[in-house]
Design a binder for these strands. Structure first.
Length: 496
RNA sequence: GGGCCGCUAGCUCAAUUGGCUAGAGCAUCCGGCUCUUAACCGGAGGGUUGCGGGUUCGAGUCCCGCGCGGCCUACCA
């Protein structure tokens, strides 16, 4: 891990540098290369070619050399491009002595362009009979083990480019991620949502309960924060009459790093005027299965060795019902506080004296219920106390018209009917401000500008947030968020 | 943040209870080979065992500190 970018003394690098120098002295590398076919094209076009065939079809291919086998007068190379691999067949009779000698000097990892006619070997391997080739750029670095590849998790994360070269799984996950994002975008666009961009750099980080990253604007001499949500800006746009908006955006939270948390992650948030949380349920039940279909071809997926069925309708349950079920005893917001605290204590939860019934139920849910939920479940009616931006339920104003999509013990989406009463919103903010003053760095700050926007009138609105990274994890069967983020946050490599 | 574990050649991995010159495969270099699929065969080179200190006749192995990573745990999506 401690090698630096200049290793002239390393014999493995020195040999490659020698070749590199030779190429530079004899005219250097080409600035471009005309490729006629991708590897995948060739396999598709010539899938019927019998073993030992020769054709008149001349093609040019380009890619990175992954394998090289030499038989003296005959050589085989495996060239990998963005679509797959194609074999290069190099014999002296075709390429000539000079060319063949030059080819015997190429190293694993070099970028090559090669042209020749299509053929199949006696064993039937589709190949390009190389009559001309060029080194497009040498790789000066030793290549990972051609069979075992790169296993070290740290190296794979730090040098994702090498991981992508040698590990097909890494390429598949990266591709699946783009499919997820593209399909999410398509699903919302086809439903009439407009994609917008809201600020990342803010005077105050609002819209969620989390610690922000702090920075400073020098010209304005002003402390600023990276956003922790897009919520309040998107709702301002609904106030402005953009009735259906969404944003797929990078969010930054200055909190712990573990298998499901990276300091920067991607969230989709969508808001729809004249809709409520039940409309958001329908939206989730439509969109998530469509994304699953786009990635896996179906709505039943296997995650970490267990089956998951994302086919709608999804199971629905209220938070208090789930907690009651877990306790084997009915509880709700009217339950005795001491009794609830007793249940919580039995579950190993460290109860604080000041906690209300709402907080106790919510803590029991988070610590003892949510981790046990496997099948996709829409958990509804969280207490208002833990939902500072959600609208109250008309039947019980202590509960929010809200739901979370929980799958395999984790939260994948969070949605509610948006609180649009400016006075109620002010009171919620002020309750948060008390906690903030008491040292809770994650409590929501009062956002006066947002309150002003609410006073202009937010129509009844449904809002939805989807954790994109986790969705990718679910659909690619990855247990760690670092596997679905190309360049996860890491400490700097230690220097010698 | 706390606890436990790991770090050996470019890569993937060995090394018995603290004991011989730290080994193997791939990669590299040299030689052989015109149909391989991780080609094969013969030979060679390659190590401050993460970094720093300590114990010991002797440390990859034991102890202490530091760095990076992993797992669990706590907060969060």
């Amino acid at each position: 891990m401690t090698e630096t970018s200049d290793q002239g003394k390393d014999p493995l690098v020195a040999g490659r540098r020698e070749q590199h120098q030779k190429i530079l002295e004899s005219g250097g590398y080409p600035h471009r290369y005309d490729r006629t076919h991708l590897a995948d094209d060739l396999h598709r076009l010539f899938s019927d070619l019998a073993p030992g065939s020769e054709t008149d079809t001349r093609v040019s291919v380009a890619g990175r050399l992954m394998l090289h086998r030499s038989f003296g007068k005959l050589q085989f190379g495996t060239l990998q491009d963005v679509t797959g691999t194609i074999q290069l067949f190099v014999d002296r009779a075709t390429l000539g002595d000079d060319g063949a000698n030059r080819f015997s000097e190429v190293d694993l990892g070099d970028w090559l362009g090669a042209s020749g006619v299509i053929m199949t070997t006696r064993k039937g391997e589709l190949s390009v009979r190389v009559d001309d080739f060029v080194v497009l750029q040498k790789s000066l670095r030793p290549f990972p083990d051609k069979w075992h590849g790169l296993h070290d998790i740290e190296l794979r994360s730090r040098r994702r480019y090498v991981d992508l070269m040698v590990n097909e799984e890494a390429r598949n996950v990266a591709r699946a991620r783009t499919v997820v994002v593209a399909e999410l975008r398509r699903q919302f666009e086809t439903r009439g949502f407009i994609e917008v961009e809201t600020p990342v750099l803010l005077r105050e980080a609002t819209g969620a309960m989390a610690r922000p990253f702090a920075t400073h604007h020098h010209a304005l001499d002003m402390d600023m924060y990276l956003r922790i949500a897009t919520e309040l800006f998107l709702k301002r746009l609904v106030v402005g009459g953009m009735e259906k908006v969404f944003e797929i955006g990078r969010i930054f939270r200055n909190e712990g790093v573990d298998s499901t948390h990276n300091p920067e992650f991607t969230m989709l948030e969508a808001y729809e005027a004249f809709a409520d949380y039940t409309d958001m349920m329908t939206l989730v039940e439509e969109v998530i299965p469509e994304v699953a279909r786009a990635v896996t071809g179906g709505t039943k997926v296997s995650y970490q060795g267990r089956e998951l069925d994302l086919t709608p309708p999804l199971r629905r349950a209220t938070m208090t019902d789930l907690v009651s079920e877990r306790l084997g005893h009915p509880v709700d917001l009217d339950s005795d506080k001491g009794e609830l605290a007793g249940w919580a204590g039995e579950l190993g939860i460290e109860v604080e004296e000041v906690w209300s019934q709402a907080r106790l139920i919510s803590e029991i849910y988070e610590q003892a219920v949510e981790p046990e939920i496997w099948a996709p479940t829409l958990v509804t009616h969280q207490p208002v106390e833990v939902s500072p931006l959600a609208r109250r339920n008309p039947d019980d104003p202590r509960l929010a018209d809200r739901f979370e999509l929980v799958v395999a013990g984790s939260e994948y989406a969070n949605a509610f009917s948006e609180l649009n009463d400016p006075d109620d919103q002010r009171e919620r903010f002020e309750a948060q401000a008390v906690a903030r003053a008491a040292g809770d760095l994650e409590a929501h700050p009062v956002d006066e500008d947002y309150l002003l926007a609410l006073e202009y009138g937010l129509p009844p609105t449904g809002g939805l947030g989807i954790g994109v990274d986790r969705l990718v994890m679910l659909l690619t069967d990855q247990a760690h968020i670092r596997e679905v983020i190309l360049f996860p946050t890491l400490r700097p490599e230690s220097q010698p």
